[in-house]
């Protein structure tokens, strides 16, 4: 009995610790007052609506969307063949390659951002948008390789040979047999990459320039000047967006198998 209570208490405090801040943000955004505070001063939906009126939010949202979608797609275009090569061919040092591919996960984002700024944007005159795009692609790549590898490893290799003997070229065998069978893995990688890229702060922090800011950075800037509940409202909306995407992915693909 005592044990049950103890374990329940631990579970409850853990959940509170994880989800608690999220509830504070939701309610802070529901405030009727004009400054960010908790508990909210009265209840209203006006800050949730106000979010859509802020011009810079709309611009940075568009940029973040662009980076998340295109960066992830680009990472998949590189990552799927890479994962295939790592899984199917006996490449010398495949384990090392996997480790290098995973580097952007291991290396702190601040350092990645600083390095990209120092060695790409400054000396090579890369535009900020291009640098951001490259950075986000590189950040998502490890997830793409890892998740696609997982589903490739679950796929028999002899079905490709079977396809070849039925008349396929190697390329046709890949597109007609391999690709359809790892489709859910690719979708899972896309969603994971999208969420990662969209919520990315440290790398984007270094690479944001005048007028070019991702949404999280824009929110940070906005908060330094204007301390109203719209940031809380926007945070809550973004969290719901991420949750929605992951929820749908879990329901349709069994997302958690791949992560």
């Amino acid at each position: 009995m005592g044990k049950t209570w103890a374990s329940r208490l631990i579970i409850f405090t853990t959940l509170l610790f994880l989800i608690g801040p999220f509830f504070i943000i939701i309610f802070a955004g529901l405030s009727a007052g004009s400054s960010l505070s908790f508990p909210p001063q009265g209840l209203s939906l006006k800050w949730y609506l106000a979010v859509f009126e802020v011009e810079s939010f709309r611009q940075s949202f568009t940029l973040s969307m662009f980076l998340a979608v295109c960066g992830t797609l680009c990472a998949l275009i590189i990552g799927v063949p890479a994962a295939y090569a790592i899984c199917r061919y006996k490449i010398p040092g495949a384990e090392t390659i996997k480790l290098i591919v995973a580097a952007p996960i291991i290396v702190p984002g601040i350092i990645v951002g600083l390095a990209l700024l120092r060695y790409l944007v400054v000396p090579l005159n890369f535009t900020v948008t291009l640098a951001l795009f490259l950075a986000h692609t590189a950040l998502v790549l490890p997830y793409a390789v890892r998740v696609v590898s997982a589903s490739l490893e679950n796929l028999r290799t002899d079905i490709e040979e079977a396809a070849v003997l039925l008349g396929c070229t190697r390329l046709q065998a890949f597109s007609k047999v391999v690709l359809p069978n790892i489709r859910s893995g690719i979708l899972a990688a896309f969603i994971l990459g999208f969420v990662t890229s969209f919520n990315q702060v440290p790398v984007s922090l270094f690479l944001s320039g005048p007028g070019v800011r991702t949404l999280p950075i824009d929110m940070l800037d906005y908060m330094e000047i204007t301390y109203d509940p719209s940031v809380a409202a926007l945070s809550a909306l973004l969290a719901f967006l991420s949750m929605g995407i992951v929820f749908i992915a879990e329901k349709t693909l069994g997302f958690s198998r791949y992560v």
Binding site: D158, I159, E161, V164, L165, V177, N181
Partner: peptide, 29 residues
Amino acid sequence: SANKRGVGLVFQSYALFPHLSGFENVAFG
């Protein structure tokens, strides 16, 4: 090359295409 030899192979593990129905597996070639 293997795809032009006109040789059939029944694999030990059958190597059926998991994403296709029985009919479509047979129709593949």
